[in-house]
Every structure is written in structure tokens, then in C-alpha cells.
């Protein structure tokens, strides 16, 4: 791994793959994780992660449980702002920000079960928010199951504020 600091991509130059790299970290168990902007070259790797996603880690209907469902869903979310966590050239995490009709962005974050509990999700969100900020995203929100205390704790620590609830979900938001 290069010891050079990684700088953000040069605007307007998408030709070199390295330009996709946003940040690199070592996770809590010593694995090197690279955060990249999504590029179509990674589509197959993204599909692979979701095809192997443990059903018990699905939440609020995501990721979809069928091949067709995943293809359709990805055609929507990959079209917007996506950041990938990559380890050993495999996609192990994916964060998406999808614009709503109020000028804000809904956050979704998915970490493969083999890379959970190692700080990957939090670092992925840090990289995603920095990237999103540079693209002019200002307001981010999400909903999470009321009973998902682990995830809610993560969003608390990341500066999200609980600002609503609906049925079994609570809503969090923050400004970037």
C-alpha cells in the first residue's frame, strides 16, 4: 500500500482508476480498506457483495432478496451518489445517498457481514459524507428500525439527531 497521502480526485478527470479512491483506512482487525467513488467497472463486484449478503442482516426490505430485485434497485441507487468500501479487490460495503423531492438526501449503508463490527461502516460514512459535501450535498436523513439500537448508536455518534418517527421506524438527520 502506498505511504503517500491520498488526495481527493481531480475534478473533471475520470480517466484514471486511482481518481476513484477517496480514502484508505485499516479496520479494527487490521484489514486495509479503500473507499472509492462508484464506477461502472465495479458493478459486478457490487452485485457479488449483495448476492452473498446474509438474509438476517437485511432491513426495511433492503437489499432486495432476489437477483431481479437487486438489479432493479441498483439501477436506481447507483445512478446517484454511491461510495464503496473495498478490501482485497472485493466490495465489502456500500453507502448511497439518494435525493428526495425536498432537496435533501436519504442515506443507505450496507456492510457485508464478514466486515461488520470492525469500524468499516463508520469509516465508510465518514468518507461518504466528505465526498458528498464536496458535491454540494447539505442535508442527509435516514430511517432505521426503532429496535435497531446498534445502528442508532452509530448515527448518534456521527452527529445525527432523531427528528421523527413513523410506526416502527425512527428518523435521523444531520447537516453535512
Amino acid at each position: 500500500m502506498s505511504s503517500e497521502p491520498i488526495h481527493g480526485p481531480a475534478r473533471g478527470d475520470d480517466s484514471r482508476p486511482d481518481d476513484a479512491v477517496l480514502d484508505q483506512v485499516v479496520d479494527d482487525v487490521g484489514r486495509g480498506i479503500t473507499f472509492e467513488r462508484y464506477r461502472p467497472e465495479r458493478y459486478g463486484d457490487v452485485l457479488d457483495m449483495y448476492a452473498d449478503f446474509a438474509p438476517k442482516h437485511r432491513a426495511q426490505g433492503l437489499p432486495p432478496s432476489t437477483d431481479a430485485g437487486r438489479t432493479e434497485w441498483l439501477s436506481v441507487v447507483l445512478d446517484e451518489l454511491s461510495v464503496l468500501a473495498v478490501h482485497d479487490d472485493a466490495v465489502v460495503g456500500h453507502a448511497v445517498l439518494v435525493s428526495d423531492d425536498a432537496g435533501e438526501h436519504e442515506l443507505g449503508v450496507f456492510v457485508h457481514q464478514d466486515h461488520q463490527d470492525a469500524g468499516v461502516g463508520t469509516a465508510l460514512l465518514d468518507a461518504t459524507f466528505a465526498h458528498a459535501r464536496s458535491l454540494g450535498v447539505t442535508d442527509v436523513w435516514l430511517t432505521v428500525a426503532r429496535s435497531n439500537y446498534r445502528a442508532r448508536h452509530v448515527y448518534d455518534r456521527l452527529g445525527f439527531v432523531e427528528d421523527g418517527s413513523s410506526g416502527r421506524s425512527v428518523r435521523y438527520s444531520r447537516r453535512l
Binding site: 426495511q60 426490505g61 433492503l62 432486495p64 434497485w73 439518494v98 438526501h105 436519504e106 430511517t143 413513523s166
Partner: peptide
């Protein structure tokens, strides 16, 4: 409802 990221959520309007 489905949220922008595709999550299945209970619609607050319906509620």
C-alpha cells in the same frame, strides 16, 4: 411506501 433509497417504510400519511 418506499423511501428514495428503496427502504420499505410505513407511510406517515397513511398513519
Amino acid at each position: 411506501r418506499r423511501s428514495p433509497t428503496g427502504k420499505v417504510v410505513f407511510g406517515s400519511t397513511a398513519q
